[in-house]
Amino acid sequence: SDFTIRIGDRTLHLKNVSEEILKILEELLRRGIDFEELRKIVEELIK
């Protein structure tokens, strides 16, 4: 499924993301992860 994360004025667009990855990202966001850290993790996950 497609997913968009907005943190402040920044946006991260994800396409064809599995439910498992979404759950991980949601947990990281709940813990207050930094946007740049989140972006790096996402890039690793979707390689």
Rank of each mutant, 00 (worst) to 15 (best):
I46W: 13
D9K: 07
E44V: 11
L45I: 09
T11Y: 06
K47V: 12
E36H: 08
R30C: 05
E26C: 12
I7A: 02
E43L: 13
E20S: 09
F35M: 07
I46G: 12
R39H: 10
R39K: 12
R39G: 07
E43W: 15
H13V: 15
L38P: 01
I5V: 07
V42F: 05
R10V: 09
L28D: 03
D2K: 00
L29P: 02
D34Q: 15
I5L: 03
I5S: 00
K40E: 10
G8N: 04
G8Q: 03
I21K: 08
I7Y: 04
E26I: 14
E44R: 11
N16P: 01
E36Y: 13
R30G: 05
L12G: 00
V17Y: 01
I33H: 08
L29F: 07
S1I: 14
D2H: 01
E44D: 12
K23G: 13
R39W: 14
L12T: 00
N16I: 04
R10N: 09
I33L: 12
F35A: 04
I21N: 15
V17K: 01
I46T: 12
V17C: 03
R31Q: 09
I41K: 09
D34N: 12
I21Q: 15
I41S: 07
R10G: 03
F35C: 02
H13E: 06
E43M: 12
K40T: 13
E26L: 15
R10A: 07
E20P: 15
S18V: 03
E37K: 09
K47L: 11
H13G: 01
I46P: 05
L45E: 07
I41E: 08
L22M: 13
T4N: 05
N16V: 03
K15W: 06
E19S: 11
F35H: 04
I33N: 07
I5D: 00
K15D: 02
L22W: 13
I41T: 12
L45G: 04
E27G: 09
I21D: 12
I24W: 06
F35P: 06
V42H: 03
L29T: 06
E27F: 15
E20Y: 15
I24P: 05
R31F: 05
R31N: 11
S18E: 04
R31I: 07
G32K: 09
K15A: 05
D34P: 11
K23L: 11
R30T: 11
L45W: 09
E27W: 15
R10L: 06
E20F: 14
K15S: 07
V42L: 08
K23V: 13
E19F: 14
D2P: 00
G32C: 12
L12V: 03
L22S: 09
R31E: 05
I24S: 10
T11R: 03
R30K: 09
G32N: 13
L28N: 05
E19K: 10
T4I: 15
L14C: 01
R39Q: 13
K15E: 04
L25W: 02
E20G: 09
F35S: 04
E26R: 15
E37Q: 12
V17W: 02
D9N: 11
E43K: 07
L28K: 06
I33A: 10
L22T: 12
E37F: 07
S18R: 05
E37L: 12
I21T: 14
I7W: 08
E36N: 11
E44C: 12
E27K: 08
N16W: 06
V42W: 04
L14K: 00
R39E: 13
S1Y: 15
L25F: 04
E27R: 10
E26S: 15
L45P: 03
K47T: 14
S1H: 15
L14Q: 00
F35N: 03
L38C: 03
L22D: 02
R31K: 12
G32M: 05
I21G: 09
E20K: 10
L12Y: 14
R30A: 10
S18Y: 01
L28R: 05
E20C: 03
D9S: 08
D2R: 01
R6Q: 12
G8I: 01
H13M: 10
I7F: 06
D2G: 03
I46M: 15
L14H: 00
I33Q: 05
I7Q: 02
F3D: 00
R39N: 12
L14T: 00
K23C: 06
K47Q: 09
I7C: 10
I33W: 10
I46Q: 13
I5M: 03
D34W: 04
L45N: 05
R30Y: 11
R30S: 11
R6F: 03
D2I: 01
G32Y: 05
I41P: 01
K40Q: 11
I24V: 12
K15L: 03
K15F: 07
E26G: 09
L14P: 00
I5G: 00
L12K: 00
E27C: 15
E44F: 15
R6D: 05
R10K: 11
I33F: 07
I33M: 09
L22H: 10
V42A: 14
E20I: 05
E26W: 15
I7T: 01
E43G: 08
L12D: 00
